[in-house]
Amino acid sequence: MKRTYILAVAMVLAVAGYAQKKPKINKANSARENGDLVEAKSIIDAAIEHEKTKDDGKTWYYRGLIYATLDTTSNEQFSALAENALEEATEAFAKAEEIDPEGKNYYVSGEFGIPVLMEQQISNYYSHYYNKAVTAFQNSEFEEAVEAFENSYAIVPEDTNSYVNAAYAAHNGELYDDAVRNYRLAIDNGATSKDLYYNYVNILATAMGEKEKALEVIDEALEQFPADGPLSKNKVNILIELGKIDEAKGNLEDAIKSEPDNENLYFTLGVLYDELDNMEKANEAYKSAIEINPEHYESNFNYGVNLINSANEIIKESNNLGMSKADQKKAKELEPVIQEKLKEALPQWEHIHKIAPTDKTAIETLAYIYTQLKMYDKAEEMSEKLDNL
């Protein structure tokens, strides 16, 4: 009995000694390179727990490589080894960078013995999903595209393209919850295009019926783009739909009292009156904005549009007249009124062209006015500018 007891103790000590044996992390990576992902995973899982390897940056670097390989392998037996391989891989790479930010030892030997750095490997990992997403998008497989773009930004969170494209893919696929989430992420992560706000607001207000939330997003966008016409117009339209037009008008008028030199407030008031079909009040607001800032493009443009629309309404009326003597008489009476309206609009559109020399709408409108006023040399000049755009 005594000898048996001693033997049992010896066996326990041997097992304990074996369990505490330091994992060979280089062997884990070699197993990965040789395609033995079962062994690679087994060694590296042990290494992150072992006292002598758990704080070694290279342990986490190799773990990132191994789990990235498990994540992207086409072998179902291997891919089944890890349930959240992408998450494990990205966390491991981040841990490796935390331990050694310079990461001079984070590389493997590639073709012809050329070192392949961790940064390059992460980039390749990112590209695997990004390219997969682009292909899915082009094939109108929007759900797959969204997932792959989201995997891309999980790997490289600072790349805004993946957030933006995930939002676009979801939007195209009418996956509105995914679209809203990714538009929000794109904006929060530094994407700056106004189109993101336009699309975000459109989904909230139209597809999802969340008009109050849409107003919050518009207000946020207007902080960055205070003179943006479509945003202001959207806001006014939503307020009208919500029955809050008087509240909106009151808020704007109070704001103008507090900031009488803020041209953007007058511009927004003009947009509000335009949406209420009160052109006279709208023009007053736009002119107030222009008095404060003569080069305020949006106010000048909207005022110019209203002026040319006034002329076009009379031109339309004249064109709809018949061939009777009464109609012909009426047409002659309208002709000087049309000319007067066009002459009133002309300096405004010339000013808009001066502010924005390459604005196509301004050039086209000037060409039209010059032609109507028989200023053919000027009209030809505008036509040449259009050709050179």
Score class of each variant (00 low, 15 high):
Tyr5Ala: 15
Tyr5Ile: 14
Tyr5His: 06
Val12Phe: 12
Leu13Trp: 02
Gln20Asp: 11
Lys22Gly: 00
Ile25Cys: 12
Asn34Leu: 15
Val38Arg: 11
Lys41Pro: 09
Ile43His: 03
Glu49Val: 10
Glu49Gly: 00
Thr53Asn: 00
Thr59Met: 01
Trp60Arg: 01
Gly64His: 06
Tyr67Gly: 08
Thr69Met: 11
Leu70Gly: 02
Glu76Lys: 15
Phe78Gln: 02
Phe78Asp: 15
Ala80Asp: 10
Leu86Ala: 08
Glu87Pro: 06
Ala94Asp: 07
Ala94Gln: 10
Asp100Cys: 09
Asn105Gln: 03
Val108Leu: 07
Gly110Arg: 11
Gly113Val: 12
Val116Leu: 12
Val116Arg: 02
Val116Tyr: 06
Leu117Met: 15
Leu117Trp: 13
Ile122Arg: 10
Ser127Lys: 13
Ala133Gly: 04
Gln138Thr: 09
Gln138Cys: 07
Ser140Phe: 03
Glu143Tyr: 00
Glu143Asn: 07
Val156Asn: 04
Val156Thr: 15
Glu174Asp: 09
Leu175Gly: 03
Tyr176Phe: 14
Val180Ala: 06
Arg181Thr: 12
Ile187Cys: 07
Ala191Trp: 00
Ala191Val: 06
Thr192Glu: 13
Ser193Gly: 07
Lys194Gln: 15
Lys194Val: 15
Lys211Ile: 14
Glu216Ile: 14
Val217Ser: 01
Asp219Val: 11
Glu223Pro: 04
Pro230Cys: 01
Leu231Phe: 09
Ser232Pro: 05
Val236Glu: 04
Leu242Tyr: 05
Asp261Phe: 08
Glu263Gln: 14
Tyr266Glu: 05
Phe267Pro: 09
Asn278Glu: 14
Glu284Thr: 14
Glu284Arg: 05
Ala285Asp: 06
Lys287Gly: 04
Ser288Gly: 01
Ala289Phe: 00
Ile290Trp: 04
Pro294Cys: 12
Asn300Glu: 07
Leu307Met: 10
Glu317Ser: 09
Glu317Arg: 03
Asn319Gln: 10
Ser324Asp: 05
Lys330Ile: 12
Glu333Met: 11
Glu335Lys: 12
Val337Ile: 15
Lys341Trp: 02
Ala345Arg: 02
Pro347Thr: 10
Ile355Trp: 06
Ala356Gly: 02
Thr358Trp: 00
Ala367Gln: 13
Tyr368Ile: 13
Thr371Asn: 10
Gln372Trp: 04
Leu373Ala: 05
Leu373Pro: 11
Met375Tyr: 07
Ser383Cys: 11
Leu386Arg: 01
Asn388Pro: 09
